[in-house]
Design a protein around this nucleic acid. Structure first.
Lengths: 205, 205
DNA sequence: GTCTATAGGAAGATAGAC
DNA sequence: GTCTATCTTCCTATAGAC
């Protein structure tokens, strides 16, 4: 009994430290990838930024892609959380209000680190596991949007499948562009107009 | 006189051959980049595909990025040509017809090699010359679109600057996505709906 | 002008001491 | 469990023969 407690007392701190180290590596990787890109964001630099040795890094992650994969996974999870938060207000809303919520959520999830997002996007075609995860996430969002459009009385489009695909792709990619490239016109205005565009598309007579 | 003609006779074939070799290198590079990506699309592979030695390749291009830069330049030029072709029919057209022409032109310019396009996009943030060229091209298209919207009587948007930026970004990025990722729904339908979306946005009362 | 051979350098990942 | 030192690999670019 006393032995078991002693064992637990020793083991738990170790696992907690390990989890903390993983977090440090992820945070360091996010920083390094954002600053240098994927190729120049070397594992040595990541280890240095995390203040651990390169040998230790490879004890927590088997290779460089695995680090990026976990970053992407967390990014998608955060996105899902933001979207669900907004869905929780279940009162019947206008299409415009719903679309504004979606656009805000997507912007919110991308705003903190646009350059890291760039790296994720540029690496996706080359890492099958990454590709598969992002594709699946996108499919879920399209399916959810399809149901939303099918149910909502304001929606006038003939083919909800095509419309859902178009709306999801449009919001995602346009937001990517807008947060990545600080363009000449005001960002707030562009948000308004993006919402207006998809709303008019979905509700036009 | 005879000497000059002899010189010309010798020189011209050489320049023609040289230009041909450059073309071969570009074609090979397009193929290799599309198949392997930028990093794994090595200069050795490009030379091999072009059936010349690596040493010869470096006599025509100073480095790897210069090859990609010329590919991008030609891609943008081809895009400009396609867009201008459609503008030549100067009869007053509906916004929908104009937008359909633009979307068709962008799709046409991207359809032949979506994967090469991916490589161009992924490399752009890391090569300043590339970035600058693409940014300039985009600015020109936004300016042109702004004037078009300002003149056209069907257009109802309040701020043509914001609208032009949004429309250009939307068409470009959505088309990129759609040609890159063969998605579940029909491509032709998506083209129609993309046209419908921007048209309804621009002409909504 | 085209080639072969290689310099020169950097990156990912591992071995083995502690 | 963490570190240092290094192995292996591979790429860009060049030198120098022909």
């Amino acid at each position: 009994m006393a032995d078991r407690n002693a064992l637990r007392a020793r083991k738990q701190p170790r696992q907690a430290r390990a989890e903390l180290t993983r977090q440090r590596i992820l945070a360091a990787a996010a920083h390094v990838f954002a600053e240098h890109g994927y190729a120049a964001g070397t594992t040595n630099r990541i280890a240095e930024q995390a203040r651990i040795s390169i040998g230790s890094l490879y004890q927590y992650y088997p290779n460089k892609d695995a680090i990026l994969l976990e970053l992407v996974t967390r990014h998608l999870e955060a996105g899902a959380v933001l979207l669900n938060e907004h869905q929780d207000g279940e009162q019947p809303e206008s299409i415009e209000a719903i679309m504004r919520g979606v656009v805000r959520a997507v912007i919110g999830n991308h705003l903190d680190d646009p350059k890291l997002l760039q790296v994720m996007m540029e690496r996706t075609p080359h890492a099958p596991e990454l590709m598969e995860r992002i594709t699946r996430y996108q499919r879920e969002r399209v399916a959810y949007t399809r149901d939303l459009l099918a149910r909502h009385s304001e929606v006038r489009v003939t083919d909800v499948d095509v419309a859902a695909e178009l709306v999801v792709v449009t919001v995602e990619t346009v937001v990517h562009q807008l947060v990545a490239a600080p363009c000449s016109v005001d960002a707030g205005r562009l948000e308004d107009e993006l919402v207006a565009m998809v709303t008019r598309y979905l509700t036009a007579v």
